[in-house]
Protein backbone atom coordinates (compact mmCIF):
# COMPACT_ATOMS: atom_id res chain seq x y z
CA UNK A 1 0.00 0.00 0.00
CA UNK A 2 2.85 2.35 0.82
CA UNK A 3 4.43 1.64 -2.57
CA UNK A 4 1.10 2.29 -4.29
CA UNK A 5 0.78 5.58 -2.40
CA UNK A 6 4.28 6.60 -3.43
CA UNK A 7 3.61 5.84 -7.09
CA UNK A 8 0.35 7.74 -6.98
CA UNK A 9 2.13 10.70 -5.45
CA UNK A 10 4.66 10.90 -8.22
CA UNK A 11 2.21 12.68 -10.51
CA UNK A 12 1.72 15.53 -8.00
CA UNK A 13 5.41 15.80 -7.30
CA UNK A 14 6.32 15.99 -10.96
CA UNK A 15 3.69 18.68 -11.54
CA UNK A 16 5.39 21.10 -9.18
CA UNK A 17 8.83 20.40 -10.55
CA UNK A 18 7.61 20.50 -14.14
CA UNK A 19 6.12 23.91 -13.52
CA UNK A 20 9.38 25.11 -12.08
CA UNK A 21 11.57 23.88 -14.92
CA UNK A 22 9.08 25.15 -17.51
CA UNK A 23 8.62 28.66 -16.21
CA UNK A 24 11.56 29.56 -13.95
CA UNK A 25 13.34 31.76 -16.49
CA UNK A 26 10.13 33.59 -17.33
CA UNK A 27 9.34 34.16 -13.69
CA UNK A 28 12.87 35.29 -12.99
CA UNK A 29 12.70 37.79 -15.84
CA UNK A 30 9.38 39.17 -14.59
CA UNK A 31 10.73 39.55 -11.06
CA UNK A 32 13.98 41.14 -12.27
CA UNK A 33 12.08 43.75 -14.30
CA UNK A 34 10.68 45.02 -11.00
CA UNK A 35 13.49 44.32 -8.56
CA UNK A 36 16.64 44.75 -10.72
CA UNK A 37 18.45 42.44 -8.34
CA UNK A 38 19.56 38.88 -9.17
CA UNK A 39 19.32 37.41 -5.68
CA UNK A 40 16.05 39.11 -4.83
CA UNK A 41 14.61 37.88 -8.11
CA UNK A 42 15.69 34.32 -7.25
CA UNK A 43 14.00 34.70 -3.87
CA UNK A 44 10.87 35.99 -5.60
CA UNK A 45 10.81 32.87 -7.81
CA UNK A 46 11.26 30.63 -4.78
CA UNK A 47 8.57 32.45 -2.84
CA UNK A 48 6.24 32.24 -5.84
CA UNK A 49 6.52 28.48 -5.89
CA UNK A 50 5.67 28.28 -2.20
CA UNK A 51 2.45 30.09 -3.10
CA UNK A 52 1.85 28.00 -6.19
CA UNK A 53 2.22 24.74 -4.24
CA UNK A 54 -0.63 25.84 -1.96
CA UNK A 55 -2.80 26.42 -5.02
CA UNK A 56 -1.74 23.56 -7.24
CA UNK A 57 -5.35 22.53 -7.64
CA UNK A 58 -5.98 25.73 -9.59
CA UNK A 59 -3.63 24.55 -12.35
CA UNK A 60 -4.88 22.07 -14.92
CA UNK A 61 -2.34 21.87 -17.69
CA UNK A 62 1.27 22.74 -17.14
CA UNK A 63 2.09 23.89 -20.66
CA UNK A 64 -0.68 26.29 -21.63
CA UNK A 65 -0.94 30.08 -21.99
CA UNK A 66 -3.30 30.40 -19.05
CA UNK A 67 -0.89 28.66 -16.67
CA UNK A 68 1.97 30.70 -18.09
CA UNK A 69 0.08 33.90 -17.36
CA UNK A 70 -0.81 32.62 -13.89
CA UNK A 71 2.75 31.97 -12.77
CA UNK A 72 3.77 35.38 -14.12
CA UNK A 73 1.00 37.08 -12.14
CA UNK A 74 2.08 35.30 -8.96
CA UNK A 75 5.73 36.14 -9.45
CA UNK A 76 5.03 39.73 -10.39
CA UNK A 77 3.02 40.32 -7.24
CA UNK A 78 5.59 38.62 -5.02
CA UNK A 79 8.23 40.86 -6.58
CA UNK A 80 6.03 43.91 -5.97
CA UNK A 81 5.71 42.87 -2.33
CA UNK A 82 9.49 42.66 -2.05
CA UNK A 83 9.70 46.07 -3.66
CA UNK A 84 7.13 47.50 -1.26
CA UNK A 85 9.14 46.26 1.70
CA UNK A 86 12.38 47.62 0.26
CA UNK A 87 10.71 50.92 -0.64
CA UNK A 88 9.16 51.18 2.81
CA UNK A 89 12.55 50.67 4.35
CA UNK A 90 13.89 53.43 2.10
CA UNK A 91 10.96 55.69 3.08
CA UNK A 92 9.68 55.98 -0.46
CA UNK A 93 6.21 54.63 0.14
CA UNK A 94 4.56 57.23 -2.13
CA UNK A 95 5.74 55.41 -5.25
CA UNK A 96 3.39 52.53 -4.55
CA UNK A 97 0.26 54.68 -4.02
CA UNK A 98 0.64 56.30 -7.43
CA UNK A 99 -0.19 53.07 -9.18
CA UNK A 100 -3.79 53.23 -7.92
CA UNK A 101 -6.20 55.08 -10.21
CA UNK A 102 -9.00 57.24 -8.93
CA UNK A 103 -12.13 56.21 -10.77
CA UNK A 104 -14.56 58.46 -8.89
CA UNK A 105 -14.99 60.58 -11.99
CA UNK A 106 -15.59 57.65 -14.23
CA UNK A 107 -19.28 57.53 -14.98
CA UNK A 108 -21.03 54.45 -16.15
CA UNK A 109 -24.49 54.82 -17.49
CA UNK A 110 -26.23 51.68 -18.69
CA UNK A 111 -28.05 53.76 -21.27
CA UNK A 112 -24.76 54.57 -22.97
CA UNK A 113 -23.76 50.96 -23.42
CA UNK A 114 -24.64 48.74 -26.31
CA UNK A 115 -23.92 45.08 -25.83
CA UNK A 116 -23.05 43.34 -29.05
CA UNK A 117 -21.32 40.21 -30.15
CA UNK A 118 -18.02 42.10 -30.11
CA UNK A 119 -18.45 43.28 -26.51
CA UNK A 120 -16.55 40.34 -25.06
CA UNK A 121 -13.51 40.90 -27.23
CA UNK A 122 -13.65 44.65 -26.54
CA UNK A 123 -13.66 44.02 -22.82
CA UNK A 124 -10.87 41.50 -23.34
CA UNK A 125 -8.73 44.12 -25.01
CA UNK A 126 -9.58 46.58 -22.25
CA UNK A 127 -8.49 44.05 -19.63
CA UNK A 128 -5.16 43.61 -21.37
CA UNK A 129 -4.66 47.36 -21.32
CA UNK A 130 -5.48 47.75 -17.63
CA UNK A 131 -2.71 48.61 -15.18
CA UNK A 132 -1.13 45.42 -13.81
CA UNK A 133 -2.53 45.85 -10.28
CA UNK A 134 -6.09 45.91 -11.63
CA UNK A 135 -5.55 43.36 -14.33
CA UNK A 136 -3.88 40.86 -12.00
CA UNK A 137 -6.58 41.30 -9.34
CA UNK A 138 -9.33 40.82 -11.90
CA UNK A 139 -7.75 37.76 -13.54
CA UNK A 140 -6.99 36.11 -10.21
CA UNK A 141 -10.63 36.55 -9.30
CA UNK A 142 -12.34 35.74 -12.58
CA UNK A 143 -10.02 33.25 -14.28
CA UNK A 144 -8.04 31.59 -11.53
CA UNK A 145 -10.82 31.33 -8.93
CA UNK A 146 -9.17 33.20 -6.06
CA UNK A 147 -11.44 34.71 -3.44
CA UNK A 148 -10.85 38.22 -2.08
CA UNK A 149 -8.97 37.03 0.98
CA UNK A 150 -6.65 34.83 -1.06
CA UNK A 151 -5.88 37.75 -3.38
CA UNK A 152 -5.30 39.95 -0.33
CA UNK A 153 -2.86 37.42 1.14
CA UNK A 154 -0.98 37.12 -2.15
CA UNK A 155 -0.67 40.84 -2.71
CA UNK A 156 -0.18 41.62 0.98
CA UNK A 157 -3.03 44.10 1.00
CA UNK A 158 -6.34 44.15 2.82
CA UNK A 159 -9.47 42.42 1.51
CA UNK A 160 -11.06 45.86 1.39
CA UNK A 161 -8.37 47.07 -0.98
CA UNK A 162 -8.99 44.03 -3.18
CA UNK A 163 -12.69 44.90 -3.32
CA UNK A 164 -11.84 48.48 -4.25
CA UNK A 165 -9.52 47.36 -7.03
CA UNK A 166 -12.11 44.98 -8.43
CA UNK A 167 -14.72 47.72 -8.30
CA UNK A 168 -12.41 50.18 -10.07
CA UNK A 169 -11.41 47.62 -12.68
CA UNK A 170 -15.05 46.91 -13.42
CA UNK A 171 -15.77 50.59 -13.72
CA UNK A 172 -12.90 51.08 -16.13
CA UNK A 173 -14.05 48.20 -18.29
CA UNK A 174 -17.62 49.49 -18.48
CA UNK A 175 -16.20 52.88 -19.40
CA UNK A 176 -14.26 51.20 -22.15
CA UNK A 177 -17.52 49.82 -23.55
CA UNK A 178 -19.07 53.27 -23.46
CA UNK A 179 -16.01 54.69 -25.17
CA UNK A 180 -16.44 52.27 -28.04
CA UNK A 181 -20.03 53.33 -28.51
CA UNK A 182 -19.05 56.98 -28.62
Amino acid sequence: MIIYVVIQDTSDQLKVEKLYYQYRYLMYREANKILHDHHLSEDAVQQSFIRIIDNLHKIDEIICPRTKNYVVIICRNIALNFLKKRTYLNNNSNDIDETEINTDNVLDDPLNILITKESVSRIGVAIELLAPIYRDTLLLKETYGYNNQEIANLMEISAETVKKRLFRARKLLIHALEGELK
Binding site: R24, Y25, L26, Y28, R29, H38, H39, E42, D43, V45, Q46, C64, P65, R66, T67, K68, N69, Y70, V72, I115, S119, V120, S121, R122, I123, G124, A126, I127, E128, R135, L138, L139, E142, T143, Y144, R170, L173
Partner: peptide
Protein backbone atom coordinates in the same frame (compact mmCIF):
# COMPACT_ATOMS: atom_id res chain seq x y z
CA UNK B 1 -20.71 37.60 -17.22
CA UNK B 2 -19.06 39.53 -20.03
CA UNK B 3 -16.11 40.40 -17.80
CA UNK B 4 -15.79 36.81 -16.67
CA UNK B 5 -15.74 35.47 -20.23
CA UNK B 6 -13.44 38.23 -21.42
CA UNK B 7 -11.06 37.64 -18.51
CA UNK B 8 -10.59 34.00 -19.53
CA UNK B 9 -9.83 35.00 -23.09
CA UNK B 10 -7.42 37.71 -21.92
CA UNK B 11 -5.59 35.31 -19.65
CA UNK B 12 -4.96 33.04 -22.63
CA UNK B 13 -3.94 35.94 -24.89
CA UNK B 14 -1.59 37.41 -22.33
CA UNK B 15 0.00 34.04 -21.79
CA UNK B 16 0.47 33.51 -25.51
CA UNK B 17 2.04 36.91 -25.98
CA UNK B 18 4.64 36.49 -23.28
CA UNK B 19 8.05 36.28 -24.95
CA UNK B 20 10.35 33.33 -24.38
CA UNK B 21 13.01 34.42 -21.92
CA UNK B 22 16.70 33.65 -22.12
CA UNK B 23 18.14 31.04 -19.75
CA UNK B 24 19.53 32.28 -16.46
CA UNK B 25 22.20 30.86 -14.25
CA UNK B 26 20.63 30.37 -10.84
CA UNK B 27 22.85 30.34 -7.79
CA UNK B 28 23.69 27.13 -5.94
CA UNK B 29 21.85 28.49 -2.90
CA UNK B 30 18.67 28.89 -4.95
Amino acid sequence: QLIHDAANISADNLGQNLPEPEPVEFSEKH
